[in-house]
């Protein structure tokens, strides 16, 4: 599929998703999950469209989307990096890793996506892998007992791949 059709394709997908979940208000969460899968975030116009289709108010849908940290109303970067800052990871030194990554990517606790839309870095409260603490997830690959140096290496690896593909 060419890039020209990407937006149209996504919108068709939204319609499919709505049909699949029978446009039922009780299925708001799976619908939003599927839509976010498609767009990598929840665009406002699409949310309004979904609200209309489900017969709920846009404010209610916004409430649901902002309740769960899984949902994002901002576009996310191409690569998503998550650092666990739950109790176990925190005790085992996640703060130093977080600081190193933020410094490397020029991000803060509030600004989580780089301007070039390449990276999104977020902290999560627990990944359920406390035995591996501190835990870093880079594009779904899990890195255990990670140090600041290892985290920066992981980013360098992505950079190298991106240069190669460019």
């Amino acid at each position: 599929m060419s890039a020209t059709y990407a937006a149209a394709h996504s919108f068709n997908k939204v319609m499919e998703i709505l049909d699949r979940f029978e446009r039922s208000e009780t299925k708001i969460i799976p619908i939003l999950q599927a839509v976010q899968e498609e767009y990598r975030y929840l665009p406002q116009e699409v949310m309004t469209f979904i609200a209309t289709s489900l017969g709920v108010s846009p404010a209610r849908l916004y409430g649901v989307a902002t309740f769960y940290s899984h949902f994002s109303l901002e576009p996310k970067g191409k690569h998503i990096i998550k650092m666990c800052d739950g109790t176990a990871c925190h005790v085992r030194g996640s703060s130093a890793v977080i600081d190193a990554i933020r410094k490397r990517l020029n991000l803060t606790a509030k600004k989580i996506t780089t301007d070039d839309m390449m990276y999104t870095f977020e902290t999560v409260s627990c990944l359920g892998a406390c035995g591996l603490a501190p835990v870093l997830v880079v594009d779904d690959a899990i890195h255990g007992q990670v140090t600041p140096e290892q985290a920066l290496d992981a980013i360098e690896k992505i950079e190298a791949e991106e240069r190669e593909n460019a």
């Binding site: 709920v56 846009p58 404010a59 916004y62 309740f67 109303l73």
Partner: peptide
């Protein structure tokens, strides 16, 4: 109508119009 609803969670929870817009921009 439901022009306003609870948004966000925990200590950040607040009553908001859709997308945090002004009442003047929503239903």
């Amino acid at each position: 109508i439901g022009a306003i609803d609870f948004a966000a969670r925990g200590q950040n929870v607040n009553v908001a119009a859709a997308y945090g817009k002004s009442l003047a921009q929503v239903d």
